[in-house]
Design a protein around this nucleic acid. Sequence first.
DNA 1: GGCAACTACCTTGCATTGCAAGGTACTATG
DNA 2: CATAGTACCTTGCAATGCAAGGTAGTTGCC
Lengths: 118, 118
Amino acid sequence: MGTVNIDNWVVQLRKGVLELCLVNLLANGEIYGYDVVKQLARVKGLVVTEGTVYPLLSRLRKAGLLTARLEESPSGPARKYYGLSSEGRQARVLMNACWGDLLKGIAELQKEREGNHG
Amino acid sequence: MGTVNIDNWVVQLRKGVLELCLVNLLANGEIYGYDVVKQLARVKGLVVTEGTVYPLLSRLRKAGLLTARLEESPSGPARKYYGLSSEGRQARVLMNACWGDLLKGIAELQKEREGNHG
DNA sequence: GGCAACTACCTTGCATTGCAAGGTACTATG
DNA sequence: CATAGTACCTTGCAATGCAAGGTAGTTGCC
């Protein structure tokens, strides 16, 4: 192997974090799927593609967290705008709280002994 | 559906975060698998079982990030102690750096508009 | 009209992986 | 022998990220 395979780890890390990012992105207002892809792709450490985002939007909409409506585009096919439902807004609050708890736990593990080896 | 299904989301969130927690736990020194289970289970927001931890330890050992050695127990079967290899220590540094980057990106998404709905 | 490029949506199929459940085995207690 | 605790591991299922491929509307070029 030679070098440490961080790439594969980062792939795994993104899992689960995506939904958190999505609901927080949508909390700023409705946006359409293709735009979600581009905006999330700009978050450092978070490389996403359409194959990830569209199924995720579908799942969360079916789960009742997102609303969706079609709107014609000035140029190109119609856009499907997604927004947070009231359930989605509740979920966002809970998710951010869970996230905060997890961060604390991880931070504790990270800080126990920074750079020694017994 | 009625209530927001946060449970399922938390399950997904844990994915990928586990390896980060593990390497930081091992950075404190060698511990054996059964003990890893108990210690990680105490991290808030991180409920893990043997079915999660043992395959993970195996994977990371095969990837060269962990060392393993058997040691007899004063009572019960032999324990397999795991520790970070030099690759594992390098990986830990990189992983913590990636984690920091991701946190920043997520924090930005979270803070854009905290609690309004206008 | 024909063709390529961009926007915008969605689905299929594969690989990974968390985890409940089940299995093996050692030690100690009764 | 039976039970309980420690300690390891594997099997099988469900979830999901993502590369790849597909459909369709608009624009611009020849």
